[in-house]
Amino acid sequence: MPGHKPWLPALATDDKSSRLYMKPPAFGYEAPTSIEQATALLSMHDGDARIIAGGQSLVPMLNFRLLVPSVLVDINRIAGLDEIRDDGKGGLTIGALVRHFQLEASELVAARFPILTEAVRHIAHLAIRNRGTIGGSLSHADPAAELPMMVQLLNGALTIAGPDGTRTVAARDFFDGALTTVLDDAEIVTEIALPALPAGAGWGFKEVARRAGDFAMAAAAVTLTQKDTLIEEARVAVMGVHDQAIRVPGAEAMLQGAVADNGTITAAIAAVREAVDPDDDLHATAEFRRHLIGVLVGRAIHDAWHRAAVAHT
């Protein structure tokens, strides 16, 4: 893993942390069956406990001993968190324990948010998708993970349960840099609300990774609606090119109310390249990533415009 994900913090506290462990340290294990029990356990351990959901990001970090929690609180036995529900208003409510594969296979998701279905097809491999959860992916907040970008693009909101009750946080306010969110130690993401897209919205999703299933080098997601020959509402989100997935308001402003021609798209691309702050790593230089994300955004806008046109006629 060192070198594999350069932004992984060295979280282990003892001086043996530089040794390469391949087995997790000892920890206690709790499997609560209600959200109340889970938050109580988390607050009892006061920052020393960790939630485990799909384990697909947490267990590698435990195996390498980048994390040394005293207790794991397994939320998989809490009923009711694994459902995809119709919100009755054209949107969806997605439980935190919904697995990536469930999203991929859901006809409801494909009907309401085909761009989400497309994005999930780029997450890891089947065996990882069978376990990994949306709540875990959002809470882990990897800068190159698809779901943190998608919930921001789709104007999602997260319901978060804590010892003192629940709160709702807009997806755009939830992330706070690489592997960091606004979650407190004793809080659990319980569900994610995705409001309906505007009628006739078109979409585009473009990603480049070394191999199918690898973490992306960069990806872009765009939705837009048309009014006559003009772009009406536009949303642009990117990942892999900043310390977290972000919306790009500068690019959205270039698109909104403009004619969808080469000049407009070029201006939006320039705004994206301006807004991002990519890193160099094993796979690509910052300069390459900055170039790449512009190309991907351009293609995603093109697809979105084309699909919006189809939706309009």
């Binding site: 485990i52 590698p60 195996n63 594969f101 065996a127 990882i128």
Partner: peptide, 22 residues
């Protein structure tokens, strides 16, 4: 750490990494 697939088994009929499950 989940990348090689050698440990893949079926859990309740679904493929999972046995190295990423306790």
């Amino acid at each position: 750490h989940g990348v090689c697939g050698a440990c893949t088994i079926l859990m309740n009929g679904n493929s999972v990494r046995a190295c990423l499950t306790f």
